[in-house]
Amino acid sequence: MDINRRDFLKTAVVGGSLVLSSGARPADASMPRELPPEAVGILYDATLCIGCKSCMYNCKQFNSVEGGALYSKGATDPPYEFRTPQEIWDAPKALSSKTLNVIRVHRSGTGENKDSAENGYSFIKQHCLHCIAPTCVSVCPVAALKKDPDNGIVYYEEDRCIGCRYCMLACPFRVPQYEYEKAFPQVRKCQLCRHRIKEGSFSACCEFCPTGASIFGKVADLKVEAQKRLELKPGQEYDYPVQKVDSGEKMRRPVSKYLNHIYGAKEAGGTQYMMLAGVPFDLLGFHKNVDETFLPDLTWAYISKIPAVIVGVLLVGAGTWAITSRNKKADKEE
């Protein structure tokens, strides 16, 4: 197998630069780090939540229509958790491929005091947090999950998805769910009622929340509102907006004791769904280890080295081959 060394080196260099030019383009490829200016989101205040699950019910109703995140072609009814021809049963306990939004609870001790970590309980509304730098978007090999450049919603294109479920593994909040029961399954997750926003409406969970525990709005406004609430004194009366952060409908009620923490303001680099509660968030199912790191950076640190590795391996390999094969020839000549 005598091939011309020059030819070989040429091939190697051409091949390397081909990979470089087409493959990794670090500058435009890294994930966003800032919110789109029109980013919308949800503020959930666990101290206002009464556990009526109205958000869960209406989420399912309004996402089962065409364009919704739970829609399946040909389906006439919402995807209930359990269904036989005779009976329907739908009391989801956790997120599933049929439930995008769930109210869960943390109980401790006697469970008497609302929003207290000792002998108390707290509700928590679990659904997609719409991270500023979403891990699911960054890990999806086919860009089936995308972040809307205008409103920042993390949405899903079912026609691209191959079903590798890396998004499920990567999500620090255990959000994406998979339709294991189907032969041609999809990933299901909250898409912040993107189809309703397009029609000028807003998220169903916020529209139907009776207490204003979930309110919809621009992320910037929601942050201001959340900060305002943290500065209130417990017991003081406050007009809590209902449905939307800038809505005219208010509900006056005394302020509960807040934990001084807006979950989602900084976690995982920031999210568009933010939460307030009276109970530490690690008790409410959010892992302590999720800090302010932009998680996609962790893999980007590896990917950004790939071009250098390609060039390095090819050059070193070719060089080594050149030297060792010359030695061989020299040996022979001797």
Binding site: C140, P141, G163, T299
Partner: peptide, 29 residues
Amino acid sequence: AIFLDIGQSFRIWHPMVMWQVNSIMFIVA
């Protein structure tokens, strides 16, 4: 194994045409 493990096996070629260079899974594929 990957062909059988991914949910939509017949889309296994998607990563070849739908590049997403942030994804390790794309690199792996």
